[in-house]
Computed example of a mutant assay.
Amino acid sequence: MKRLCLLRHAKSDWSDPSSDDFDRPINARGAKAADFMAHYIAHCRYRPDYVLCSSARRAAQTCAPLSEELGASVPVEYLDILYHAMPDILLAQAQGAPDSVETLLIVAHNPGLVLFAMALSHDPDDEISTRVANGVPTGGFIVFEFPDAEHWSEIAEGTGNTVFFGRPRDLMSESRT
């Protein structure tokens, strides 16, 4: 079985309107969420063993604490093609992952990320998919399982079970209780 995790980059800094979109960093709130999500993802049951990340600055900054938490044994590949990638590109990148990888994480951007998530779900009306369709905030984390896939090339639209969706705000609140 293959498992695909999607992580939207953390909240970006809009204080410099002249900044190029690709080079926009995360803000202080985004850095706090990125640190929290890094710890959460590295220690949850959906821990990835391979990461594909957009090379945009805010995505790379989101991924940096996660890379530290996961350690050197989990490769992180930064790809320009993931910058504002739409579902077809995201699917192609997932399908091209090494078959030795069981849990793949892709760190990318909306709107492509949420469109991809909706396309993957075999049941777009289930509770988790409905929550995803209502919006994936910055730092949002979605997990799909593909029980019939032994190879990444076998995953396709409409074949994933949406098993988890967490928003940093909610997960931070739960960790305090």
Score class of each variant (00 low, 15 high):
Asn110Ile: 13
Asp49Asn: 03
Val132Ile: 15
Ser18Tyr: 12
Arg47Thr: 15
Val163Trp: 03
Glu77Met: 06
Val107Leu: 09
His39Glu: 13
Ile26Gln: 09
Ala92Asp: 10
Leu82Ala: 04
Pro17Glu: 14
Ser67Ala: 15
Ala72His: 12
Leu171Met: 10
Val51Gly: 03
Ser121Thr: 08
Ile155Asp: 01
Gly160Gln: 03
Phe164Leu: 02
Ala60Val: 14
Asp148Arg: 06
Met86Asn: 03
Pro65Leu: 04
Tyr50Ala: 08
Asp99Pro: 07
His151Gly: 01
Asp148Ile: 05
Val107Trp: 07
Pro137Arg: 13
Val76Gln: 01
Pro124Leu: 01
Trp14Val: 10
Ser67Val: 05
Asp148Gly: 00
Arg169Ser: 04
Cys63Ile: 10
Arg169Lys: 02
Leu115His: 05
Phe22Gly: 04
Ala108Arg: 13
Ala34Thr: 01
Pro124His: 12
Tyr46Arg: 03
Asp170Tyr: 02
Lys2Ser: 00
Leu120Ser: 03
Pro111Trp: 10
Ala117His: 07
Ala94Asn: 11
Gln95Leu: 10
Glu102Ser: 10
Arg58Val: 06
Leu171Arg: 00
Glu145Asp: 07
Ser15Asn: 02
Ala59Ser: 09
Arg176Cys: 01
His39Arg: 08
Gly140Val: 13
Val114Cys: 12
Tyr50Lys: 13
Met172Val: 14
Tyr46Lys: 04
Arg47Asp: 04
Ala85Trp: 05
Leu70Arg: 13
Phe165Asn: 00
Lys11Thr: 02
Ser54Ile: 14
Leu113Arg: 15
Leu104Ser: 05
Tyr50Asn: 02
Leu104Gly: 05
Arg176Trp: 02
Ala92Cys: 03
Ala85Thr: 11
Asp20His: 15
Ala59Val: 10
Pro17Met: 06
His109Pro: 01
Asp99Gly: 05
Gly140Asp: 01
Ser173Leu: 12
Leu105Thr: 08
Met1Val: 13
Gln61Met: 15
Arg3Thr: 12
Gly158Ser: 05
Asp88Pro: 07
Gly140Tyr: 11
Ala133Ile: 00
